[in-house]
């Protein structure tokens, strides 16, 4: 019925081998990146993401961007900006976060990217399992102003040894709000090691 003659077979086999080789070579690359919330394992995420960019579209902070640094995950989302986590913390500020922490009364989780994901690459995880990134403090730049301590929505930053801010990675979800609000910009975030 389909007329699969010798010529067609060779042609399709050529297409199969060529595309399979090319795409496999592209696809086996892996790295560590700061992903939007709801990622348990990088590998699992990459294998489920269809690069549709829906999460970019719905993110109220504009923090999610498509990544173009590698070929293997071209067009997958990364969290370049910050994650509001709660809808009240879009565009965070010292006053806003401190006020929010005092009265969490109507706290509402944002996670619109998770709801938008059509393939479940971003999962609706319990809050304590969400790990986006790991904060690092550059002590050369840090002025010990403790704004990070005051604004952290998860109380994950405390005054540690010698007065440097210390991050409780159990509580920290890596939303990057401290980096955004840090006056001397001494806090940076690294991908979560998974």
């Amino acid at each position: 019925m389909y007329g699969l003659n010798r010529r067609s077979f060779i042609a399709s086999m050529t297409g199969l081998l060529a595309s399979a080789t090319l795409l496999t070579l592209i696809g086996i690359g892996r790295g560590k990146k700061i992903r939007p919330p709801g990622v348990l394992e990088e590998d699992e995420f990459v294998s489920s993401c269809i690069r549709c960019g829906k999460c970019v579209d719905v993110c109220p902070t504009g923090g999610i961007k498509l990544d173009y640094s590698d070929l293997y995950d071209l067009g997958t989302p990364v969290l370049e900006g910050y994650c509001a986590v709660y809808t009240q913390l879009v565009e965070p500020s010292q006053e806003k976060n401190v006020r929010f922490k005092r009265s969490r009364e109507n706290a509402e989780l944002c996670l619109r990217c998770v709801d938008a994901c059509p393939t479940g690459a971003l999962k609706r995880l319990p809050l304590k399992k969400i790990k986006i990134s790991i904060p690092k403090n550059d002590e050369e730049k840090c002025t010990k102003c403790y704004v990070c301590v005051a604004i952290c929505p998860f109380d994950a930053v405390s005054v540690g040894k010698d007065g440097w801010p210390s991050f409780d990675l159990e509580k920290c979800i890596g939303c990057k709000q401290c980096a955004v609000l840090c006056p001397p910009r001494s806090i940076t975030h690294e991908p979560y090691g998974r």
Binding site: G15, L16, L17, A18, S19, A20, T21, L22, L23, T24, I26, G27, I28, D43, V46, S47, S48, C49, I50, R51, C52, L71, Y72, D73, L74, G75, T76
Partner: peptide
């Protein structure tokens, strides 16, 4: 090839 490579590399690379 697209589907086969997705199995081999565990990555829907065609989408990129």
């Amino acid at each position: 090839g697209v589907l086969g490579s997705a199995v081999l590399s565990r990555n829907p690379a065609w989408c990129s």
